[in-house]
Amino acid sequence: MSAVLQTRGLGKRYRQLQALADCTLSIPAGRVVGLVGPNGAGKTTLLNLAVGMLAPTSGTIEVLGAKPGSGSAQLARVGFVAQDTPTYAGLSVADHLRLGAHLNPGWDAALARDRIERLGLDPARRAGKMSGGQRAQLALTLALAKKPELLVLDEPIASLDPLARREFLDSLAEFVAVHRVSVVMSSHLVGDLERVCDYLIVLVASRIQLAGEVTELLASHRQLTGPSRDPATLPAGWQVISASRTDGQSTLLVRTSGPIDDPAWAASHVDLEDLVLAYLSRAARPGQRPALDAQP
C-alpha cells in the first residue's frame, strides 16, 4: 500500500530501441533510493516514466498510488530535477523562486529563500551566468520548496566537481532528514550514492539486476575465498554473482540468506561498491541471463 513507486512488467520502447524492459519494482515510502547503472542502461527512462514525462509502452507504473503526471494534484506530490538540471538561462534566481511560488500551491517560500541564502546564491544573478553546481542547487531548491512527497533526481551531480557534489548530497541528506521525503536518484557513480542511499536498484542493459534495502543487500552478500571447487558442489542456497580463480584459490561473491558454516571458506563482508560492480560485470558478461531472481 505505502509504495512510492510500484511497477509491474514496465517497459519502454523507442522505435528500434528497448530502453527499459520487464521492470517490476515496489519501493516502500521513506527511502532514499539510489538507481545505479552504466550510461544508456535506462535510468533516465525509468525516472521519466515515474514523473510522467514518458508513457510506458508495456506494463504499469504507479507513483504514490496514482498514474504519474496524471493531473496537477499528482504533479504537486512529485518533485523532479531532470538530467542536466535545466533552468531558464535568462531568468534570475529570484525569478525562478517567483516561478516556483506562482506555479505551486504548496510552495514553501521561506524554505526556498533560506536555502538560496545558505547556498550563497545572489538572487539577482541570472541562471545562465551561474556554475553547473549553482544551477543544480537552484533546480533542487525549486523541487524541494514545492514540498513533494517524492523527489526524483536524475543524475543531479553528474556534472559537478567533487566539492559541489558533496555539498549537493549533504544538503539533500539534511532536507530528507528534516522533511521525511522519499527520494529516487540516479547516478552512474556508486560512491556518491553510498553516502545518502538506503535502498539500491542496479539497472543494466534496460533490465533490473538487483533491488533492495542496502542493509539487507550487504547482509546477504559475502565475499568468499577458498579452494577451487566445482560450482556444482556449492551449497544450494548460494547464488554466485561473480567468481575468479587464482593459484587453486577461488574468490566468490555469493548471495545467500544462511550463514557460511563451511570452514574451508574465509568469508568477508562486501561494500556497496564491490556489490554493484559484481552485478554490473555479471550483466555485462555475454550469454548471461539477467538475474530476475535477484529481486526481493
Partner: peptide, 17 residues
C-alpha cells in the same frame, strides 16, 4: 531545445494548462 520543459512541466501545472 533548452530542456526547460522538464522544469516547466514538473511544476503543479499540467502541460495542457
Amino acid at each position: 531545445e533548452t530542456h526547460t520543459h522538464r522544469l516547466a512541466w514538473n511544476q503543479t501545472v499540467t502541460r495542457t494548462r
